[in-house]
């Protein structure tokens, strides 16, 4: 469904991603692992159109996404949950969720998707009138995921959803993601929390200094000596 073919990207001449290739198939649950500054967010932003790759192709359902503006990529079915949630802080939870379905092709199905999100995260229904900026970190993450879901994605891209959350919220969010995946949604999960990511995803890639250094199913990654030493502290 999504295929990155030797993507290069950078800012002001400094290369952040070099020759990155990866793919996410229909119904896949793929994780991209890496430490801070490995280039994970740059890669995510290339997919969503916020950063334009200097080289390479990003093929989604047969067409190249390079140069397509972000709002159109969202309409095509790739919805991003950005790092740090990035909600609209002085809008209510409900308004944030409504914004998730702002794309012309998503508007008609907004009421049913809203109901779906409120079922998935009942806490958001309780807080629908509250300003998003006043929510706890975990609730904000739920709102950010909810907002992306209302766009009706076929591929959900999450950038470090576990960052700064209590274990309880991490558990709740990953259980929700598992349910979504079982419902047929494709997921690309970008994480530096390897133990959580490898417990849920089917396979993954390891990104180091802008390059993919390792790829495989989660059992292979979990048993890899380099991964065990560098990321799991074993």
């Amino acid at each position: 469904m999504l295929e990155l073919q030797s993507v290069h990207a950078g800012y002001d001449g400094i290369e952040v991603l070099s020759n990155v290739s990866l793919s996410v198939g229909d119904g896949d649950y793929v994780t991209l692992l890496g430490a801070n500054n490995a280039g994970k967010s740059t890669l995510v932003n290339c997919i969503s159109g916020l950063v334009r790759p200097t080289n390479g192709r990003i093929i989604y359902k047969g067409s190249d996404l390079v140069g397509v503006p972000p709002h159109e990529i969202t309409s095509m079915g790739i919805c991003q949950v950005p790092e740090g949630r990035q909600l609209f802080p002085s809008m209510t939870v409900l308004e944030n969720l409504l914004m998730g379905g702002i794309a012309p092709n998503a508007r008609s199905r907004r009421p049913e998707r809203l109901e779906f999100v409120f079922e998935l995260f009942p806490r958001l229904a309780e807080r629908r009138k509250q300003q998003a900026g006043t929510l706890s970190g975990g609730e904000q993450q739920m709102a950010a995921i909810g907002r992306a879901l209302i766009g009706g994605p076929t591929l959900l891209v999450l950038d470090e959803p576990s960052l700064g959350l209590s274990p309880l919220f991490v558990k709740a969010i990953f259980e929700a993601l598992r349910g979504l995946h079982q419902g047929g949604l494709s997921i690309l999960l970008v994480e530096q929390n390897l133990s959580v990511a490898l417990r849920h995803a089917q396979r993954g890639y390891v990104l180091e200094r802008g390059e993919i250094v390792l790829a495989g199913n989660n059992a292979k990654l979990r048993d890899d000596p380099h991964v065990r030493r560098a990321y799991l502290g074993l």
């Binding site: 969503s48 159109g49 916020l50 503006p69 972000p70 709002h71 969202t74 309409s75 919805c79 991003q80 950005p82 990035q86 909600l87 609209f88 802080p89 002085s90 809008m91 914004m99 998730g100 379905g101 702002i102 794309a103 998503a106 907002r147 992306a148 766009g151």
Partner: peptide
């Protein structure tokens, strides 16, 4: 309001 509060998020949700 979305563009005012967070331009990147606005673009990401489809504005």
């Amino acid at each position: 309001r979305a563009v005012h509060q967070n331009e990147r998020s606005a673009a990401l949700v489809g504005v």
